[in-house]
Design a protein around this nucleic acid. Structure first.
Lengths: 291, 291
DNA sequence: AGGAGATATAGACCACGTCTATGATCAATT
DNA sequence: AATTGATCATAGACGTGGTCTATATCTCCT
């Protein structure tokens, strides 16, 4: 099999029409180039160049070879440029999996500044449940997952993100609860609005009630944080929401937090990546940014 | 600059999904392949493969690189196939320059058997005058020229071909000349049909008459052997033709040779190639065949 | 005649690519 | 649990082959 380095030499010799200038381009000496061309010609058994007093020119067969090699070399050059672009993050993509609410309320500012810093990187946001996100990660469809903790999976490496505080909130309709401190039990008298069954937050709150011997059964189940907010504001019930996601509503007073006689355990956001798998440059830079 | 051999290794590793099998395909050992891939990754600063327990698989960036390298490698493979085809004459072209009459009456059987032997070789016949043919040869537009001798040109290497005998012939209209032996001078009384002014044969006959102190002025000038034959048969005059080209007409009696009181000097056909220039395999095989 | 440019050739050298040997890890056996 | 048979990674030794310097040869141009 022919040493592909020889094609590189052939390409430059043909392109420049001179072994000496090919040598310069390749940072070699002229005899090396001469030798390389000779090797190529001998391995084909075909003369590729006419040697003139002022350089070299391709034979008919040389022209034929060049028509292939030129394209091939250009592709390699493009590949090298592309790789350089990927390396310095002028190009590439970052694929993040997780929940829409975390994207919107937590990751958005990071995504914005990341995009500003590396405008060439395409961002792919892949929303799904925690198990779906883990599966995507393992299939290599995303670089990074952002979900609620805890995650226990030996294949995954988990990094702590921000700590969030979930709480029960209500709107004007339940204004009389504003000054009260409720127990978990008393809360159950009111219509509860929870996130859909397969979410991490939902599982956590269900477990919390169970640990106190109660069972929480929502009147309404919704699929987005926006609906949790909306329904609570309309007075349809008491929503269990991440406090940080509704800072605007709390401030303007359209929602208020229900005070409880126990502190709700904080919930931790985590970044997951595959353990022992190389991380793309784009992804590691993003994690750096968030940290 | 990256060693292009590494791309070859990368290609096979990516294609087979295994460093071991890439090693087999490349007749290398597995550690060599491993080392090569590592070199490539280090020079890009990008991880190209995930290492699994049952082989390797491309990272996102690896896929990007592969999309370029695959095309590039395929082109090189095609180039190598093409070169092999050129080498064993399954492909290629042979470009011959010369006069139409020599092509038709002399070269045709050789061209036929050459084509039969090497059906993949495209034949290009480039007809023109001797100076045109020489110019084409020097410009590299033809591999080989077939012309009348003598040729004196230090850049050219000339090989003798067949020896031809030119003669004067007439048709039935001049039947009374059949048994006569004419001198050059007496010939001038008859209308003479000659090949056009820029041909070798024409120059030769003109010089011959001049060397005896006569000047030959044709009544008719034509551009093809066929017309020389046709006009002579129709009785329009006496044609000066290469005897070997009209063996059929002489045999069937539609033309007869005018006997002269001197022997016409034979004319030599020669093959010209560029001196000190490599000859294509296709061309050298043709010359071999003619010899 | 001489100089400047081109490629070819010869021979020396050493870097680097390749090898062998071994380690580490994983998965599918037994 | 232990074994086997894959995989890729690492270390270090070896030797080939690519590269260099020096020189020759040729052509063209001043």
């Amino acid at each position: 099999m022919i040493n592909y380095e020889l094609y590189k030499v052939f390409y430059w010799a043909a392109k420049t029409g001179s072994l000496s200038s090919a040598a310069k381009s390749l940072y070699l000496t002229q005899p090396s180039v001469s030798h390389a061309i000779k090797q190529l010609e001998e391995s084909f058994g075909i003369t590729l160049f006419y040697r003139n007093s002022k350089g070299v020119s391709l034979t008919q067969e040389g022209v034929t070879l060049y028509s292939y090699i030129e394209k091939s070399q250009i592709l390699i050059s493009l590949a090298e440029e592309k790789m350089a672009a990927l390396k310095n993050l002028d190009s590439g993509e970052l694929r993040i999996g997780g929940s829409d609410s975390l994207f919107k309320h937590y990751l958005l500012p990071f995504l914005e500044s990341y995009h500003q810093k590396y405008p060439g990187i395409k961002l792919h946001l892949n929303h799904g449940t925690t198990p779906e996100t883990i599966a995507f990660l393992k299939e290599g469809k995303i670089d990074l997952g952002v979900v609620r903790m805890p995650i226990v999976d030996s294949q995954l490496e988990v990094m702590m993100g921000i700590q969030l505080q979930d709480c029960f909130v209500a709107g004007a309709h339940y204004a009389d609860l504003k000054d009260q401190v409720l127990s978990l039990e008393s809360l159950l008298q009111y219509p509860i609005i929870l996130f859909s069954r397969n979410s991490r937050v939902r599982m956590a709150i269900t477990e919390l009630f169970q640990s106190y011997g109660y069972q929480i059964k929502p009147e309404i189940e919704v699929g987005s944080v926006d609906l949790l907010i909306e329904f609570a504001r309309k007075g349809l019930g008491i929503s269990y929401i991440t406090k940080e996601f509704i800072s605007k509503e709390l401030e303007e007073g359209s929602l208020f937090e229900i005070q409880l006689d126990l502190k709700m355990p904080p919930s931790q956001v985590g970044f997951m990546i595959m353990r022992d798998m190389p991380l793309s440059n784009a992804a590691s830079k993003f994690i750096e940014l968030v940290k």
